[in-house]
Structures are given as structure tokens and as C-alpha cells.
Amino acid sequence: MSILVYIEQFDGKAAPVSWEVLGKARTLVDQLGGKLAAVVIGAGVEGVAKEAVSYGADVVHLVEDPSLAAFRIDPYAAVVEDLVKTHSPKIVLFPATARSRDLSAVVACDLDAGLAADCSDLSLVDGGLAAVRPVFSGNLLTTVRFNGPLAVASVRARSFPTPEANPGRAGEIVKSGPVAPTTGIREEIKSFEATATGEVSLTDAKIIVSGGRGVAKDPELGFKLIKELTDTLGGAMGASRAAVDAGYIAYKHQVGQTGKVVRPDLYIAAGISGAIQHLAGMGNAKIIVAINKDAEAPIFSVANYGVVGDLYEVVPALNAEFKKRLG
């Protein structure tokens, strides 16, 4: 294998960014030669392995055991490290989710390989990986190059398009079991409390509607209106740091330098002035819409469409219009 991609699954469902990474890896392998391998670890996850074939993997290593049902670092890392030692890929790629980010770091550190975290682009230069990642909290970019036989990178969601699945595609599924002892594992998951079902995560969202300091007059109503528009559009709700610091909304919604970095197709900023720290988190959105009472707000200088107006009027009006169009 020339590239190995780790497919993250939770409860038997693949994290969508896994397919984005696999799709990009496919184009890299087509230049590099060799085979594109994927690894799926869990219990009862053969369906995810089949999906990996349909998204472009030549070989999928399906590693199943009841002890691997939930993600734990030690047993999962042992599996990936064993595959790397056996098959010597040049590149190993991971989605940059919380769990996979940890796994990528542990695997790379154990194998003494260089790692570029949270990459936004990948390419090959002289047959070696060149990984672009934001640094200085999105204010600078760098291209990471690697010393040594193995390069490891984790890739942010929505950096690459989801490839088209081809259910008829041929690929080999190689089944195996755990590598490390299945008892005496140092990590024990006590409980898991899932967030509201159907809630779209900011990093995976195609559409984000965010609120900022502009909701100060009535934060509860402001975010209620923003939530209604978000739901109509099937998107995720975001916020500026100002809105989070003021206590209008929870930190998990914060977009920007000290919050989440997002890359939606559409970003609607309602009552957000557009501080440079906020732009560092959403400047890569395909289309930005700014709704702000202040015609001089800096957000308009990065927006594609702007409305000067009161968000308490514009947001519900926009919601009504989209409801008409989307049925």
C-alpha cells in the first residue's frame, strides 16, 4: 500500500470527513502508484468497510472485536501501527476529528514519523507529501514537509469534496482481529451522553447561520430567530466570540480564532461585525452573507452579499422566503 487512510466510525456510522480524506487520497495514489488502503476498526462495522470500497479504497483492513466496539487509544493505535509496520505505506491520513486527531498523534509519535495536524490541503511534491495547514490561529499558512520514510497528516472536515460513491466498485476486504491484549486496557469508558440527535456539527455543516453582538437587545429572541433560519436551511448554528463571552450562547457554537474553524458553502453572519479573529474561523466559506445594522461593519468587506438592516426583521423575513422556496 502507498497510502493508508483511517476511517473514523462512531456507532457503526462513518464520520463524513473520512470519505473526503479517502477521495483526496485516491487522487494522490493515482499519481504515486501502489494501492490505496483504508482501515476500519470496531465491532459490527463491515458495512463501513464496504462503503470504503465504494468511495475508492483498493484494500480495506476490517479489524473487528467486541473489545474494539468503542474507540480507545491504546488498542486502536496498536492496530494502525501494526498495519504500518507490515505494509510500509509512505503516507497515513486521518480525519481531524477529536478522536482521530489523538490517534494520528499517538501513531506518528510511536513510529517517530512527522505529523501535520488539521491540514486544509494535500499534494505530492517530488513524490513526498506536502501538507498545507493554518498556523498562528489561521493568520498564516504553512506547507509542512517531512523527514523520514513515513508522513502522517490529519485533515479538517470539508477541505475536500465528498467523492461519489460507486457501490459496484471492486475492492478487497481483509478481516482481522485485535493486535493488543483485549483485557487490562488502561482506558474505560464509563458513560456517553449524546448531544441532541439531528444536530449538525459546525465543522461538517454545509450551511451555518451565526449570531453576534447584534443580538444584544434581546439575545434569547435573536438566537431563536437564527435557530429557526438554521433549521429551515438544515444547517448548524454558530456565534461570534462576543456573543459567547456575553453569555448569549454556549461556547460549542463559537466560530473563529478561539472557537471552531469552519468551511461551509454558505455562512450567514447576523449581527456580527467581522473582527479579524472571527474571519480567521470562517474566511474560507464559499459564500458569505452579512446582515448588519452598521453599513461600515468590516464583515461587509469579506461578504459576497450584504444587507444593511435589523437582524430581528431580516432574519425572520429570510426564513419565511426560504420556507416558501424549500417547501
Binding site: 512527522g114 505529523l115 498556523v135 498564516l140 504553512t142 506547507t143 509542512v144 517531512f146
Partner: peptide, 12 residues
């Protein structure tokens, strides 16, 4: 000893 090196640091 560094296995990963920053090159081409630039403004986005």
C-alpha cells in the same frame, strides 16, 4: 531531529 518542518510560511 525534527520530522515535520514548516516551509513556505505565508499569509492566506
Amino acid at each position: 531531529a525534527a520530522k515535520a518542518n514548516w516551509t513556505d510560511v505565508r499569509k492566506p
